[in-house]
Design a protein around this nucleic acid. Structure first.
Lengths: 195, 195
DNA sequence: AGCGTAACTGAACGCGCGTTCATATCCAAG
DNA sequence: CTTGGATATGAACGCGCGTTCAGTTACGCT
């Protein structure tokens, strides 16, 4: 047997990425075999190599894609004026975006050490870019005297860590909607950096 | 060759745990082989099985040990009265304890999915116990009207996520001492839950 | 001095890994 | 209807995995 009925590059490619995303998130990159991914897609392991050069590139592609999505979505937010409005928007955006793709988030935080040094550097740079957006907001607020933080850089990382933590406990069937979660976190962030 | 000079159970046992801790933290449980661990200790792979039943038990033992240490150290803190004092003490303790053993922290957060279901349940329960200590503090403060949080459970997880995040960026040679870091985080936590 | 056992070696077990490749089939274009 | 490239198979490659175990050595004890 060889090529099967109804097979198309446009279908199999995304399916590989989707299956890999789910499996990597669940079991970890190192614990997932190419045969498992192929099995999920419904092809043999060898077929994967029509779409990706190797396993490492697959991981990098998923993480790079996630970070690109993150930054692109971030760019599209409305341009607000006051630091308070900008911070509130950042909180809302970060929570909504991350709750929307928990698997990609999980991978992007957990599998950094499985990236080759060059790939790691690239992802790290993108993450830094994202962090800088929040840092700029906090810095602006501090300059205007509406925020008061002992250390802007640490505050940036602290806020992001706090917000990202939402993915570890949030369940869609839980008692809180995304909007409610955003409100609860905004309340804490607002106060934490308040003057 | 067989038993080597100066070999002792009391020495090799801890050395295995120590080597496994470092390697698991650096490369991930699934990516580290028993032969790597043995190599680090200076023995053959087979010798490891005089000390541990299998690889899974080694991981569990490390994580269980870490959680036990955490809870034991937590118990030993002075009994303070006001919620503010208790919260400040919790922040200081959490940061100091976690910065003191970054590898164990890393493993305990990252390798949960590599635990067998029964082992996972045990670690999860210990983590819950720890979280409950903070939640009790926040709840007491809320009852007394000195804290004001929209949702105590979420606030608990948010604070812990924020504090634990310190391990991702703190470097011993960095510009801030542990004491300074504690102060910066305390400032944010205090305000975040303030009435 | 010699014995028993704790501590370790080194080889072996079956297995699954990531990756490659010759081969086969399907589909679209001429 | 033919043909050529895209798409997949399935077998194979060498290798390292976790684990077991018979055998060997060093040490503590009498």
């Amino acid at each position: 047997m060889a090529r099967t009925q109804g097979s198309h590059s446009e279908i199999t490619g995304p399916r590989i990425r989707s299956a890999a995303l789910a499996l990597f998130a669940k079991h970890g990159f190192a614990a997932v075999s190419m045969r498992q991914i192929a099995g999920e897609v419904g092809v043999q392991a060898g077929a994967l190599y029509n779409y990706i050069p190797d396993k490492q590139a697959l991981l990098f592609s998923l993480m790079k894609g996630h970070m690109d999505d993150l930054l692109a979505a971030c760019e599209e937010r409305p341009a607000l004026n006051t630091p308070q409005d900008r911070l509130r928007d950042f909180v809302d955006f970060h929570i909504a975006f991350h709750l929307d793709r928990p698997e990609a988030v999980f991978i992007s935080y957990m599998e950094l050490r499985n990236l080759s040094p060059e790939n790691f550097a690239q992802i790290e740079a993108l993450r830094r870019t994202y962090e800088n957006r929040l840092e700029a907001i906090l810095e602006q607020g501090r300059a205007q005297g509406v925020f008061e933080v002992a250390d802007t850089k640490i505050a940036t990382l602290a806020v992001i860590a706090m917000l990202t933590g939402v993915t570890t406990w949030y369940r869609q069937a839980g008692r809180l909607s995304v909007t409610q979660v955003q409100a609860v976190y905004w309340d804490m962030v607002r106060k934490a950096v308040a003057a």
